[in-house]
């Protein structure tokens, strides 16, 4: 048993701590914590078989009936309750004075003058309510991290993780088309179009419908299509895990920094030097276009990374 020397800890700092941790890890690792993606333990298989037998017996059918009737009851009850109260709400489409209030008028009146965005919705989500959007791009980020945590295969050189990776790759290749001429030719035409269209939506977010999220998704879809047709070998040349990490972290950091700058200067009454520019130009609207591009990069990379992780557990 490795003994902890209190003094060494303080003298040598974090490295000694990490070394000791590794020794502890070897001792405390429970057997179940290893075996990431193996088939279940024999005992589990036995249980599974038992459950399977039970599930085809009578008990299952009764349970099914209970579930079904309960679902119908809850669904009908909930909907009826909600609808009966919704009928009391102000009528849809009418000029409801409650919702069409000074705030929405303000957005339409001041949106263009303040943000320089012809598309008022972009002005709202990136400027007036930029804090929500900052949170939202972090939702995407946290989702990407969680999926990485769940699905990324171990990257080590030990035989076990190498086997896991090889197996994932083999199965991916087995179930995906290879060298499909029709697909490949279609994609040769479609993928550049999609990517150009995505970039257009992204860059024009403040002038026409669209913006970071939709543009980024279209970009990601273009990449995914390319991946489907030509496989990981081709996309891996320009897009691997390091690129993903660098682009996402960089774009998020840029986004957070610029929003932080705008918020702090705004709250403290300091002039931030970002004017709306000439209305309708592509380079107008202060930070709107760079922010759209940053969001679009995060979204596009995240979408592609999610798809790649689902397919073979790595980028």
């Amino acid at each position: 048993m490795a003994r902890i020397d209190w003094r060494r800890w303080i003298e040598e700092g974090g490295d000694a701590l990490d070394r000791d941790m590794r020794t502890f890890q070897a001792i405390t690792e429970a057997p179940e914590e290893r075996d990431p993606f193996e088939l279940p333990h024999p005992r589990e298989r036995l249980t599974y078989a038992r459950f399977h037998r039970w599930s085809h017996s009578k008990g299952e059918r009764i349970l099914k009936v209970i579930y079904f009737s309960l679902s119908v009851l809850i669904c009908l009850g909930l909907s009826a309750l909600l609808i009966s109260t919704a009928l009391d709400l102000p009528q849809f489409g009418a000029d409801a004075e409650l919702i069409d209030n000074d705030i929405s008028t303000f957005y339409v009146e001041e949106g263009l003058r303040h943000t320089g965005a012809m598309n008022i919705i972009t002005g709202i989500i990136l400027d007036f309510r930029g804090f929500d959007t900052l949170g939202e791009s972090h939702v995407l980020f946290v989702a990407a991290c969680t999926v990485l945590m769940l699905l990324r295969l171990p990257g080590g050189d030990d035989p076990e993780s190498q086997l896991a990776r090889r197996r994932a790759e083999a199965f991916d290749r087995h179930f995906e088309p290879r060298g499909d001429v029709i697909l490949a030719n279609c994609v040769r035409v479609l993928a550049p179009l999609l990517i150009v269209f995505g970039a257009y939506i992204l860059l024009n977010g403040h002038l026409s419908p669209g913006g970071g999220f939709s543009g980024g998704t279209v970009l990601g879809a273009g990449l995914i299509l390319y991946l489907c047709a030509f496989g990981f070998a081709r996309t891996g040349r320009f897009f691997n895990f390091k690129v993903f990490r660098a682009v996402t972290s960089g774009a998020l950091a840029f986004y957070a920094l610029s929003k932080g700058y705008v918020f702090i200067t705004g709250a403290n009454g300091i002039e931030n030097g970002l004017g709306p520019g000439v209305y309708g130009r592509i380079l107008s609207g202060g930070l709107l276009m760079p922010l759209s591009v940053a969001v679009g990069l995060v979204v596009g990379c995240t979408m592609y990374a999610l798809y790649a992780l689902f397919r073979k557990g790595d980028l």
Binding site: N119, I121, T122, I201, P209, G210, G211, F213, S214, T217, V218, G220, A221, I224, M303, L306, Y307, F310
Partner: peptide, 17 residues
């Protein structure tokens, strides 16, 4: 805006995943 996003996200990426 919502239409573009829904078409790209809802019937595109979500279904794909």
């Amino acid at each position: 805006d919502l239409a573009i996003t829904e078409a790209a996200v809802g019937s595109g990426i979500t279904t794909l995943l």
